[in-house]
Design a protein around this nucleic acid. Structure first.
Lengths: 174, 174
DNA sequence: TGAAGCATGTAATTTGTTACATGATTGG
DNA sequence: CCAATCATGTAACAAATTACATGCTTCA
């Protein structure tokens, strides 16, 4: 049993596996795409590597399908649940997220904001509409976490639309 | 002369070196902290590794101080400028940034938002005040890029304060 | 029935982080 | 003049991305 450091990637995998058993990396890919991936996306290859790491450390068990391709199926262990819940209830630190937007980086270093703003205002409008639709779907469902997190995404998408629209010399109407 | 892939880290170094010559990694660290680091921070060790990479590829030149510690001094080359400007004026893609906030990740997976919200609302208020002060400093200066980028940061900090204050059951007064 | 694209995975490479270390400077 | 902290860097390690590869479905 190896000691490993748990990263955000680890917690995403643990969090998803807490909800469902006997999950393949491919299933994980779909689960990520369905929700958390909006907030924190992962490459599909990480969804092969990370469960392996977590298994070595005792947080997951790995079994094989009987027939067919004998794909790997992962499930969370008690130790995995413990680690997840310990993290969820740990005293929060006050680490702030960074913006890390490529377009903004270019603007910082002197790029003409116009074309960037046009493109990104449009892209954020699309994303905003997608979130608004998702909000309808999630409204009133349990657990509440995904909806609460989504509302942060909504706020930031609105802010991005406001910001880039202003720079593009448009109004921000949709 | 080696081929290398230019990453955001590369462009940050190139962008900073366009403004000044004969810069040590330590200087770079200070330059990052003074501005772009708010948007996109780098570990100090990357500021040793990255200029070396860029030098091998012909985008920078490396010289040595005469006396003392004979520290390494970097300056941008014509090829470096070209690469930077090509990037700055390239047709923008519409890649959207992700939020990647640890607190929000916890909320998504079911953590109690209360304590997280309290802590982060406070931290974002502090950051917001810092940005407001910076805005005063930058107002009217040239080049305009840093101020324009800062205004995005201001908008998002306000949005974070609004969001987390709401979840903390505070009003968002400062 | 064959092409397109989805599903599934491995391996190599590159990037970024952490750990460690030591010389210089400065405030108390 | 001592402790703290800033300045400066290297090396080892871990993580994430990219490249590659191949089996399976489906539908034209």
């Amino acid at each position: 049993m190896e000691e490993i450091r748990l990263t955000p990637t680890s917690y995403i995998v643990l969090g998803l596996l807490e909800q469902e058993e006997d999950v393949t990396p491919y299933d994980l890919k779909a689960m990520v795409a369905a929700g958390i991936g909006n907030l924190w996306s992962l490459q599909h290859t990480q969804l092969y590597a990370e469960p392996e790491r977590l298994t070595k450390a005792g947080y997951l068990t790995e079994t094989r399908e009987d027939g067919g391709r004998r794909r790997k199926l992962y499930s969370i262990t008690a130790a995995g649940r413990d680690a997840l819940h310990a993290w969820l209830s740990k005293e929060p630190d006050d680490e702030l997220p960074e913006v890390r937007d490529i377009g903004l980086l270019k603007v910082f270093f002197g790029a003409d904001p116009g074309p960037i703003a046009l493109k990104l205002a449009q892209a954020h409008r699309v994303k905003l509409r997608e979130y608004e639709a998702l909000e309808q779907t999630l409204a009133g469902t349990e657990p509440a976490g995904p909806l609460t997190a989504l509302r942060a995404g909504l706020g930031h998408e609105r802010e991005w639309v406001r910001y880039w629209s202003g720079l593009a010399g448009e109004d921000d109407a949709r």
